[in-house]
Amino acid sequence: MNKSIFILFFLIAQLSFGQECMNVKFKIRGYFYAGSSQIDSTALGGFYVDKNVPKKLNAEIGKYSNSKDMELLVKPEMAAEYMEGIAGFKVFLINKTDSIMELPAQDSRLYLIRQVFYKNEWRDVEYLPSSWCGNSYHNVYIDPNDYWEFTAPCLKGKIEAKFRFQLYVNENLTIYSNEFEGSFNKRQLRKEQGHKPMGFMDPYNN
């Protein structure tokens, strides 16, 4: 997408809904939560179960992907509210294979993060927290011809760059999205957002 068109979409969204892009100076914690099409019978149990279950492909979503594989698609022109006051855009994970796909998760959080192309290499500007509780770790499943729909926050900063999302599936498969334009702050390459546990039942320190 032409960069000027991309910026125009977000200006319209912000004027319409009073939203702004996130201007932060740290790596954002992973936020892609996915429900499952089936139960993980091998998991210990006790993990957070998200309600964002896969949906059946319809004609509108199906036309986004011409691939017969599993595809991660960023649609920056599809403005959406990430959270109150924060502008976002749609991200789709589409399974057009003929198999049920199994993805690792922590409390329903996919191993999916944003990367920026900076100084001739791809670098993370988001991170995945690590749980000390084994019950947090499980798998989620998506059936053939299903898709997940997510909303990612729009970022803004001092450095203009191109971005993509990276999804770890297993040791043999990592999926990358299409690239898109945006901006970020340099400190997003180093410092993590961090997290303070909300009691003993919260197994995350970062």
Rank of each mutant, 00 (worst) to 15 (best):
Y137I: 06
Q193H: 06
I5F: 15
N66C: 06
S4Q: 13
E171W: 00
E192F: 09
I39Q: 13
V140S: 03
L103K: 00
I12K: 05
Q188I: 06
N95L: 06
F150N: 06
F26S: 15
G194Y: 07
M201P: 00
A59R: 14
L112Q: 04
Y147L: 04
E20H: 14
I61W: 03
E171H: 09
N66G: 12
Y48S: 00
D50S: 14
G18H: 03
I5M: 12
I61R: 02
E192V: 14
M78R: 12
E71D: 15
G46H: 06
S131T: 07
K119H: 11
A87C: 11
D40P: 05
N170S: 06
I175F: 09
Q166K: 15
E102L: 04
Q166D: 09
Y48E: 08
E60N: 10
E179T: 14
I5C: 02
I100F: 01
K156S: 15
E102N: 09
P129N: 05
M70F: 06
L93D: 01
Y127L: 09
K63I: 11
S4N: 13
E181V: 15
D146F: 13
P197S: 04
F9R: 10
F165H: 10
R187P: 00
E181Q: 14
K158L: 03
S4F: 05
S131W: 07
I175L: 13
N139P: 01
S177M: 07
N185D: 10
R123W: 00
D40C: 06
K156N: 12
M70Q: 06
L15C: 11
G88S: 09
D69E: 15
D40N: 06
D69A: 14
G18D: 03
A59Y: 10
S136R: 07
V140D: 01
T174L: 01
G182D: 09
F92L: 12
